[in-house]
């Protein structure tokens, strides 16, 4: 039973290798791992904790090495399958990322990460960004709400299509060929979280830092009182 669990764990770990490497070596590596497992049981009567740690560490280091090797061979953008959706998503998110960087630098300069940045607030509220069109600051809304939503949608749809159509469980392919997709979706969601939580985001971090992860379910009420 333990052998099956350990073997399954190692089999899933091997899915992190690049696809070409998996096709070539996965079966052999799993067979060799099983041989080593049986040797360990024969020698000690059971599996020692360092056996799995040693095997996992060795494999993970080699996984990283193989991905770096592939990047060196194909180039980073080719390897990450940079496509027009990523480019468009990047363009749509770049104003938001610029504003976020301005805010973060301001907070670092003022020496307080957890309270709003006065300079940034002035910039937002007294420049063209806050210009009212039909009674609302639509330009700001466009940058921090609509553009991220569009960036998320145009990157999520191809990804969902890939997941639905993928014929075999290839976690490595899903993760590494869509790395930029994940970054764009994360950044878009971050924009929406900051907007709809107002100062929620820094409060969220502060609450976890001070109160620990066990209070994660109380975060919302803590931040609403802050």
């Amino acid at each position: 039973m333990l052998n099956q669990k350990v073997t399954n764990f190692y089999r899933h770990l091997l899915h992190l290798y690049p696809s070409a490497y998996q096709r070539r070596f996965n079966t052999e590596m799993l067979t060799t791992f099983n041989d080593l497992y049986h040797d360990e049981v024969k020698l000690y009567g059971k599996i020692k904790p360092w056996f799995l740690l040693e095997m996992t560490t060795d494999t993970i280091l080699n996984i990283i090495n193989e991905h770096f090797f592939m990047i060196k061979k194909h180039g980073l953008l080719n390897y990450l399958h940079f496509n027009r959706y990523h480019l468009l998503g990047g363009i749509l998110l770049s104003p938001f990322i610029t504003l976020l960087s301005y805010d973060l630098i301001g907070r670092l300069v003022q020496g307080d990460l957890f309270h709003y940045n006065r300079a940034f607030y002035y910039f937002i509220s007294h420049t063209f960004l806050y210009a009212n069109y039909f009674g609302r600051p639509y330009l700001l809304w466009l940058i921090i709400v609509l553009a991220p939503i569009i960036a998320i949608i145009i990157n999520l749809l191809p990804f969902i299509f890939l997941i639905v159509n993928i014929k075999q469980n290839n976690f490595s392919r899903i993760l590494f060929s869509n790395f930029i997709t994940f970054i764009i979706i994360f950044t878009g969601l971050l924009a929406l979280l900051i907007v709809y939580g107002h100062d929620f985001f820094p409060c969220f971090i502060q609450a976890i830092y001070h109160r620990g992860l066990q209070n994660i379910f109380n975060i919302i009420s803590i931040c609403q009182k802050a």
């Binding site: 052999e28 590596m29 791992f33 041989d35 080593l36 095997m55 060795d58 494999t59 993970i60 080699n62």
Partner: peptide
Amino acid sequence: GYDIMKTVALDSANKIKLGPGTLY
């Protein structure tokens, strides 16, 4: 592969121990 691993450990007097990741 497994045979290579064992032979390397024997020849090097266990100074070189290859895991499956390093070996392959």
